[in-house]
Design a protein around this nucleic acid. Structure first.
Length: 786
DNA sequence: GAGCACTGC
């Protein structure tokens, strides 16, 4: 028993290794292609710089003296793998003095680790007391580049802004564009963000700076919240996902004059899709300008992606045609220096190493909070255990706090409360603190060098979470978290040699690590027929694309020519959910149970409706049993939702039943949105009034590909998937755990030492052939002779 | 009888 488990474990590790090796070789070929294009991009950079110079000269002669200081030529020596936070190479640029305005701080040229992108640094202007908003705006580093940015946007189809945190680019650039007329004539300036919270905070900040009411001249749109006004809004902040949805109604995004894609270096799935589509739109809309904001490392690959000029520069000199080669401009940030410390020898156990590093910081360094990056909840719990044991026997003064997304809201709030005098907070966090949350007061960062990443294996159609070494870009981002309030220190639990020689420059884009069904259907809905030939910022593997096409074909969403079917294909594309869930909703119309199925879809699209708390496992199990349905988890969700509604959506009721109140509110919101969409699609909102067979049939219509059969004579609950005979088990959190019905379909798989099915429902095998006759041959379903 | 990096429509 233990042996088979160990073997399974070894096999899983081996599989992870092969996935990583595969990604490594993909990365290598990418580096090669980067090298191959280096020269042409250096030329491009130079021409961009010359363009700025010309602009400034022109402005000088027209007696408008810009405050910008500009260098004339990029240094080409690639100080490969240098570390900008610590060992930055600072030198004066001799040719710069010509443009250095006397009486101001002399600008310095800082060479970037890639050698290709310039930073201009100048001391932040000093000033005390309350400044007007306008003064504050002028004090942001980006202000010095206002003229240059406007010139570049005017003359280039695409401008890439390399900006460190705190440069002010996100709040200022849209305002500069508006001030110079890009929002006139009824046009709008769009600025996308990867996260909802960022959209909201940036939009309200900009509205405040402009002295307008949020939702009028400045507005924002995120899912469930559209704070814009059709007549008035000129600057609109939105998530990249929302902009993708907008493209379904307006494929050329005609109402926007400039689209700024912020945080593009994060390379999220929707950012990458958006970038690919924007490049396509540019060809049809020469008037459209793109501003891509990106971190250093990604800037040049972005530039080569958007470079559509075909070496016929002579034809670009038309008056109104912008240059096709992107311009790159770097803006320094406002973070403080962070000193980087490496370990001398590789550490055998990063949790112990992290704990002892925290202790020595506490003993030896001045006050300031500590942020520790580990990979997941298990690591965090283990570290906290070690640390609290340790600090009991030592002096007091450490407040140890965990941070991860699954943490209950109240526990997260403690982290943001100010550190009491004489105390030091130690926040032990997952990647959530790398980009999604900002913690003030952190002066020391401890970086274990790993994070959990999703990897998708198209062969067995399973996504896996794997502890993976982070990239240099991530390491820099983590270190930067120490320099927000004053100069800080970052302790890397790996050697400098490893950082320089072995750590990859940037991570693998999500596009190359994910299941692509949602992505493919979105592109199909936008009329992109040749998915395999689409010009992606990072091409996904053909296997993953083919698998996605197969799944969509089996769902009846794509036809034999891989075109969207009508109406089913277009309807599924319209619903903002995983296509299998969307298909389930469409099918619910036929079975007269759309109200129930929409509730199920809403629950499936959030993480968990249960209140997580490690100590209270028994209580949670008992609570779950109160709602348990023999049919399975989906029906159990219906029972919980019914109870929640019956209680008048009471938080008290949730608390008593170990249900997560915030999750249920979200379920309710998603449910309302899905009902509106369903009505638009002509799906009758109808309840089956307790006929759970109808609900199960609808679930089967979407998830037939996830059908599993209990192995004959299996005493330990072993199932095999009908499609590929994968060995799977029902997850212990399922209400069908140990019940082991003969036939089930599952919503998703989590793979740990076994493959576990999460959210399972019983079915009748005859429904499979009914739902997908082309997918299941009748004979496959017959019991095996024994 | 066990475990959930992080987003988003």
């Amino acid at each position: 028993m233990t042996t088979t488990r160990s073997i399974a474990k070894i096999e899983k590790v081996e599989e992870s290794f092969s996935v990583i090796a595969e990604e490594q070789s993909r990365l290598n070929s990418r580096i090669e292609s980067l090298d191959a294009n280096l020269n042409s991009r250096m030329n491009m950079l130079e021409t961009s710089m010359v363009a700025i110079l010309l602009a400034i000269q022109a402005l000088k002669t027209s007696r408008v003296v810009p405050t910008t200081a500009v260098a004339s030529k990029a240094s080409t020596s690639a100080a490969a793998n240098g570390e900008p936070e610590s060992g930055t190479l600072v030198k004066d640029c001799t040719r710069m003095s010509r443009f250095w305005k006397p009486g101001t701080e002399k600008p310095r040229l800082v060479e970037d680790e890639e050698g290709g992108v310039l930073f201009y640094t100048a001391a932040a202007s000093s000033g005390y007391g309350l400044a007007s908003i306008e003064k504050q705006r002028q004090r942001l580093p980006v202000y010095k580049y206002r003229t240059a940015i406007l010139y570049l946007v005017e003359t280039h189809a695409t401008t890439i802004i390399v900006g460190e945190t705190g440069s002010g680019k996100t709040t200022q650039i849209p305002q500069y564009l508006k001030e110079s007329g890009w929002a006139e004539g009824g046009r709008m300036i769009a600025c996308t963000q990867p996260r909802r919270l960022a959209v909201q905070t940036v939009a309200s900040r900009v509205a405040e700076e402009m002295g307008v009411k949020l939702g009028e001249e400045v507005g924002y749109t995120i899912r469930f919240e559209d704070i814009t006004n059709n007549e008035l809004t000129r600057i609109k902040f939105l998530t990249d996902g929302v902009l993708l949805r907008e493209m379904m109604d307006d494929p050329l995004l005609g109402k926007y004059s400039v689209i700024m894609v912020d945080e593009a270096h994060e390379r999220s799935l929707s950012t990458d899709i958006l970038l690919g589509l924007l490049k396509k739109i540019q060809r049809r809309r020469p008037d459209l300008r793109l501003v891509i904001s990106s971190a250093t490392i990604e800037a040049r690959s972005m530039a080569s992606f958007f470079n559509t000029s075909r070496k016929r520069q002579g034809r670009d000199d038309g008056e109104h045609v912008p240059r096709k080669e992107p311009a790159i401009l770097s803006v320094e940030g406002r973070g403080f220096n962070v000193q980087i410390c490496y370990v001398e020898e590789p550490v055998p156990d990063y949790i112990r190493a992290a704990v002892s590093t925290v202790c020595s910081i506490h003993d030896e360094e001045s006050m300031g909070d500590i942020l520790v990056f580990l990979t997941g909840q298990d690591d965090i719990d283990a570290a906290i255990q070690l640390l609290t044991e340790d600090s009991h026997s030592r002096k007091q003064g450490l407040i140890v706090l965990p941070l991860y997304s699954g943490l209950p809201r109240a526990d997260q709030d403690i982290i943001f409360s100010p550190t009491p005098r004489g105390k030091r907070k130690v926040i032990i966090s997952t990647n959530i603190a790398e980009t999604s949350l900002t913690l003030e007061g952190v002066v020391y960062v401890v970086d274990c060098g790993f994070s959990k990443q999703r990897f998708y294996n198209p062969m067995i159609d399973i996504e896996n979470l794997v502890v993976t070494p982070i990239s240099k870009a991530s390491a820099r981002q983590r270190a930067g978290r120490a320099g927000r309030i004053r100069p800080g220190k970052c302790y890397r639990l790996y050697t400098e040699e490893y950082f320089i020689n072995e750590m990859s420059a940037d991570g693998i884009p999500e596009m190359q690590r994910s299941n692509l069904v949602s992505c493919v259907i979105q592109l199909k809905a936008l009329g992109i027929d040749n998915i395999l030939g689409f010009d992606w910022p990072a091409s996904p593997s053909p296997e993953a694309l083919i698998r996605a096409l197969e799944v969509l074909y089996s769902l009846g969403v794509l036809d034999d020519d891989a075109k969207l079917t009508s109406p089913a294909g277009f309807q599924v594309a319209e619903i903002p959910l995983d296509p299998m869930v969307s298909k389930m909703i469409l099918a619910s119309n036929d079975y007269g149970c759309s109200e129930e199925v929409i509730t199920i879809a809403a629950v499936l699209s959030i993480q968990s409706i249960w209140f997580s708390g490690r100590g209270a496992q028994k209580e949670l199990d008992e609570a779950r049993l109160r709602f348990a349905a023999a049919e399975g988890d989906h029906v159990t969700f219906l029972n919980v939702y019914k109870g929640f509604i019956g209680s008048g959506k009471s938080s008290n009721w949730c608390h008593k039943n170990h249900v997560n109140y915030h999750a249920m509110k979200k379920v309710d919101e998603i449910r309302q949105q899905l009902r509106r969409i369903a009505q638009r699609l002509g799906i009758a909102l109808k309840s089956c009034e307790g006929d759970m067979k109808a609900v199960r049939k609808a679930v089967t219509a979407g998830f037939f590909a996830n059908a599993c059969r209990l192995e004959a004579f299996s005493h330990n609950g072993l199932y095999k998937t009908v499609r590929s005979s994968q060995e799977v088990y029902i997850h212990p959190s399922s209400v069908l755990f140990r019940v082991n019905p003969k036939w089930v379909v599952f919503h998703s798989i989590v793979s740990t030492d076994r493959q576990y099915m999460r959210n399972v429902i019983t079915i009748d095998p005859s429904w499979l052939t009914e739902a997908a006759p082309q997918f299941y041959q009748q004979q496959q379903l017959k019991p095996r002779p024994h």
